[in-house]
Each structure stands twice: as structure tokens, then as C-alpha cells.
Design a protein around this nucleic acid. Structure first.
Lengths: 341, 341
DNA sequence: CTATTCCGTGCAACCGGTTGCACGTCAAGC
DNA sequence: GCTTGACGTGCAACCGGTTGCACGGAATAG
């Protein structure tokens, strides 16, 4: 019946108990509440467990305590460079509290996301949803089953971590204004994205305050290709600078400009968002930091606090952002701009 | 706080059984072996379970069957762009078989990797180690506890998936040779990396066959910065082209060259490895594909096959690679000056 | 019409820990 | 010397499913 037989012979608590001449309970307590037992008993059991190579069974423990020491992290797209730092930070933070993390990739698909939650929910103590595409009522529902934390998604009553691009975008506009730009373009990302709405609004507001004219162009999806595709329109707009929804789009724009012989930043200034490329473009990209790693860390902390009952109610952590000035912004060419050939 | 209070009230099999007027066993079988029950019984139970919002408890099931439906994926660095596609593919492949994946990030640290394995091992059916930094004996040891699959790591007797850069590197050399290069540099990655050794050796061999002289420079770590840092030496070498251990290094080199006003590919040709940047550099990078997504998929498949007893012994899956020619390679400048048309 | 299968279902014993409660012992308190 | 309490340990009932086996009734065979 059981194949590959010899591998499975893990020792159980009963084995240790027998070998030590005590009961299961004592062995159990030797591991979980040693202060409750006689010192030498604990030591003896520990020694025997070690020789036997006994390791407590996580699953059994989880079943009786309801505490798995696991949490689920569900993201929309692992391959989007925004996420890896977040995932990494979350994983390490969890690890520091002896938690294991389940990773789910919803592929931007709400149904898939729902399915993942269902699959995970019974083996984790809590969930973190990053940029969830789920409707508010589904999120509420899931939150009713397990402690739930959101990152970059706003649902009242659910603890959440928000990366506030507003501050960074405002700085970007101030920066462009100071350089002398009067007409810029916002290259927008997915309309269903909370971050996109936030950035667009912040940008419009700040631009108005600085007396800068704003056009909005839409890159259908946040990718290098769509950034490159939007360049023609960008040039047509006769703006002198652009702020892109994210760095990927910005990178595409850089290529598109380079292909047309339009030098950045001399003839056109460009600001990205998210700072996922580090300085790894040439010229290096001026961008708004995203602090996604901190968001990941904060998400885990929030969840863990929640689990230990240290925190209740409607927590809302906001991480502000700031502009990282690198080399893609400069004063606009005086009066005229080059025509693409 | 009604919501918080009611949270743990997950329905159990007993609830469903009571509501349906049957026994637990019947409910259990309705989910796991429906063909054993009357059709209308199954339907009725399914309907009731649905209204109640019942979801089987994964942990309890795992305890009695010994089958958790989980697997662990341990990588050295989530943030390295090589991994996300692999992780994504693995996750989706696992998902197709109703498996959940634990993600571990060892941060290039063998001790951390060991620790992760220990933490995961009792709650997964099998493990996948990608580019493991563990010694062979540790790997053997872990493989003795649970089915284990390696990706890009060679340990005899352990099933493994290897991305064979040899084919792609050979094509790269042939390509450079055809363009007329006679002296190139290999910019090496981490010396403990299996992939690095493989690439270096393949390159040397192929170069010899084409009568090309090879220097080796070392970028300490595979990153943009270390690529940029190696440029000075690169120029000093007076080689006309370079093959970098990975795309990140190559990207750094591009920047370093650009900063010195050396145009690529006119004055210097460059080939990356891994194809993690897509075409997202300017000029777009000629590189050796890595197929990391396929490796992830293959790893999961291998493990799952293993678990179902469909496969035994010393499996070794090799994925070959190929050169993707883009825009960073051209004929070397003749003498000191560029050659027109 | 009785004997024999077969089928659908229930019973109860697991899986491997945890934990409330009870019990026995030994020492301090009166 | 007897009571009391603290302390160390064992008993047994969970946690929420799975599964071998038994059982009753209907269908089929004789």
C-alpha cells in the first residue's frame, strides 16, 4: 500500500515515551512546557529524542493546537519585479518568528485568487493579500475565516499596509516644476489598480498647484512593451516630461526615445515609479521609491501582532515614498524640441 | 467585534454530516470517493457543504493520510530575476495537481537553507532545491527524509533538472567567431555556482575550437554593480567582446561602457546569460536563454511523479539552451576605427 | 420463496500530538 | 502527627478527518 516504505519511519512521541519510560504527555511537555517538569526528566527525554532522531510532527501539532506556524502570502504576479523584494522581506520576517510562508500567485485572476485562499486557509494562521483583485465582499468574507492583512488594497475594517505614492509623486512634480517643465504626461497603468488611481490623482493635484499642464496617456498593462508602444503618442503630445506608472513602462519609454534619437534627459525628462530597477538603466532612472520590502515586512508584522492578540481593530499602516533623483530628469530644452525623423 | 469573535467557527465534517442526516464517514467519502456512494447522497452533501461554506481541513486530512499536498521550494534569492519565472511556473504546475507550495529563501546561506529544510520537512511531501548551496552529504541526508528534487545542482542519485548552458554558450561563441572576434572575455559569476563552472568550461572549449583567445575576469557577485565595476579591467584586456555570467552583470557592463562613451555593439560586443531582461535594455541584449520557467515546471513534475511512485532512481532532466541574438553583438571594429557599411 | 451478492452507509479505531484534570508523593505548616 | 499545598506525572478526551470492517436491505440467483 505505502510505497517507498523505509523513508516514512519517522519516530513518534509514543516511541520516545516508551524509551524514556514516561507517558506521551510528559514527552509533549518536555518540548512545549519544560518548566512544568523535573529538570532531569526534561534532559533525559531530550537526550533520548535526540538519539532516536525524533522530530515533532508539525501537522499533528497544528491539528490539536490550531496553530500551524504558517502564513499565506498571495500576490498577483511573482514575476513582476515589484514583488520579489516584498516576498523576500516577508519571508525573512516570518522566518524570524518561526513562521513558514505559503506563496500563492493569482496571475491577476480573481478566481484563482479565491481558489488559492480556499486551499491555503485551513493550513495557515493568517493571510496576506498583496494588491488583491478580489471584490471587497470576498475579502471581508475571507477575513471572517482567518486573520487577514492587505497590502496596497483598501478595505475598511481590514488591517492594511499602504504604500502611499502621494508624497513621492508630489516631490516628482515639484522637481519637474523646479527644472522648468510646464507640460507633462502621466502614463497610466491598469485602471483597476489602487496604486494607479492614487498616483494619477496625486499627480493631477500637485501639477495644478504648480501650474503644470497634465495629459494622461494609457499604457494598457504595466510592461516594457507597452511603455515602448506609448512613445509615439508621447512625442505627439509635445510635453517635455513624463511620469510613468511604473519603472517597467518608463524603461520601455527610454528605449522608444532612444530608438528615435531623442536623448534623455536633454530632450525629454522621465520619472518612473517603484524603483524596481535600482540604478540599472542608462541613464539611470529618476523614480519614486516604493519600499515594497518594507511593506512586506510590515504586512507580516501586522499579521503576527494580530495573531498574538497584540493588536485589534482597524489598523492602517501608511508608508510614504520619496523621489529618487537620478539621471533622467533635467531642464527642458529651451523653447523647442526635436522632431523625430 | 462580532466578526472577530465568530472567526474560528469553521464548519467541520460533523456539521455537514448532521445537517445532511448522515455520518461523518459518508461526508468524507462524498469528497474523496464519491463513486462509492449513491449519486443523490453525494449531491445532497455537496449542496449542503456549499451552503454551509464548508472547506475540508487540510491539516486533519494530512494527519490521517500522511499526504499534505504541499511541497517546498527553496531558492537562493527570490529577488534575483532568474527565480521569479521559475517560482511562478512551479507554483502553477503544483496548483494544477492541487499542491500548495512553501517558498523558502536561503539568501545564499547554507545554514539558512538547512534550517528551512528542517522547518518545512514535516509539512511537505517533497522538496525542491534550486541552485542549492548545501554540501552533497547534507543534500543526501535530506533526500533520505523526503523525496527531493534538485534544480541546477548535480548530486548523483538525486533526481535533478539541469539547465544546460553548454549548447547556448557554444552558439554564442560560434556567433562571435562568425562576426570576426578573436579575443573575448568571460566575466565569471560565483565560483560555487554549478552554472558558472559549466558556462566557463563550455566557453573555453568552444573558444579553443574556434581559435578564439579567452580571458576570464571575475565579477564577485552576479549583480548590476559588479558588472559595472568590471568594465575598467574589461577595456584593459583589449578584447573585442565579452560573455557575462548573467544578464545582470551584462547590464552593468552596458552602463559602464556607455559611461565611457564606448558604443555597444559598434565598439564592443556583449552577450549575457539567462535572458531575464527580455528585450528590456537598449540596445537589447544578445543573450543565452535560460528556460528557468521550464526548469521550475519540470522540477515539480519530477517530484510529483516521484511521489506517485511513477518514477524511481537516478532521473536527470537536461534542458538545453540557445542563443537569442539581439542587438549587442556586431563585427569588431577593424583596428581603431569604425568601419562603415 | 429462500439463499446469495452487492451496494450504500454507519461504527469506531486510528493519525500524532496537546491539555484539563486527577492522582500520588513529599515537605512545610499547625 | 495530621493537614495542606506544591510539584511532577499520567489518563483520557480532544483536534478533524480517513478507512477497514460490519451490517441491513434490495436485487439477483437458484
Amino acid at each position: 500500500m505505502q510505497q517507498a516504505g523505509r523513508r516514512k519511519k519517522q519516530h513518534t512521541m509514543a516511541d520516545v515515551a516508551r524509551a524514556a519510560g514516561v507517558s506521551k504527555s510528559t514527552v509533549s511537555r518536555a518540548f512545549t512546557q519544560p518548566e512544568m517538569l523535573g529538570t532531569e526528566t526534561v534532559e533525559r527525554i531530550a537526550a533520548i529524542a535526540k538519539t532516536l532522531g525524533y522530530v515533532p510532527n508539525h501537522t499533528a501539532r497544528a491539528l490539536s493546537t490550531g496553530r500551524h506556524g504558517n502564513l499565506a502570502l498571495i500576490v498577483t504576479d511573482v514575476a513582476n519585479p515589484f514583488f520579489p523584494p516584498l516576498i523576500r522581506a516577508a519571508q525573512m520576517e516570518a522566518d524570524g518568528s518561526d513562521f513558514c510562508v505559503f506563496l500563492g500567485n493569482s496571475d491577476e485572476n480573481p478566481r484563482q485568487e479565491d481558489k488559492l485562499v480556499d486551499r491555503f486557509v485551513s493550513q495557515v494562521e493568517g493571510l496576506i493579500l498583496v494588491g488583491s483583485r478580489l471584490g471587497a465582499e470576498r475579502i471581508q468574507h475571507h477575513a471572517g475565516r482567518r486573520p487577514l492583512v492587505l497590502i496596497n488594497r483598501e478595505v475598511t475594517g481590514i488591517p492594511r499596509v499602504l504604500i502611499d505614492s502621494t508624497t513621492g509623486v508630489r516631490q516628482a512634480i515639484a522637481h519637474l516644476a523646479a527644472l522648468g517643465h510646464r507640460h507633462i504626461v502621466y502614463v497610466s497603468g491598469p485602471s483597476s489598480s489602487w496604486a494607479n488611481r492614487q498616483r494619477r490623482n496625486a499627480l493631477r493635484l500637485a501639477a495644478r498647484q504648480h501650474g503644470i499642464e497634465v495629459d494622461v496617456l494609457s499604457a494598457r498593462v504595466p510592461s516594457y512593451e507597452s511603455g515602448r508602444a506609448v512613445v509615439a503618442e508621447l512625442i505627439e503630445s509635445r510635453a517635455t516630461a513624463a511620469v510613468a506608472f511604473d519603472d517597467l513602462i518608463a524603461q520601455g519609454i527610454m528605449t522608444g526615445m532612444a530608438e528615435r534619437g531623442i536623448p534623455i534627459p536633454e530632450a525629454f525628462s522621465l520619472v518612473g515609479c517603484d524603483d524596481v530597477l535600482g540604478a540599472a538603466t542608462y541613464p539611470s532612472l529618476t523614480t519614486v521609491s516604493n519600499r515594497s520590502d518594507e511593506a512586506g515586512r510590515a504586512g507580516v508584522t501586522l499579521l503576527l501582532d494580530r495573531l498574538s492578540g497584540r493588536m485589534a481593530g482597524d489598523t492602517r499602516v501608511v508608508l510614504d515614498t520619496h523621489l529618487v533623483v537620478r539621471q533622467t530628469t533635467a531642464a527642458p530644452a529651451s523653447g523647442q524640441r526635436r522632431q523625430g525623423g
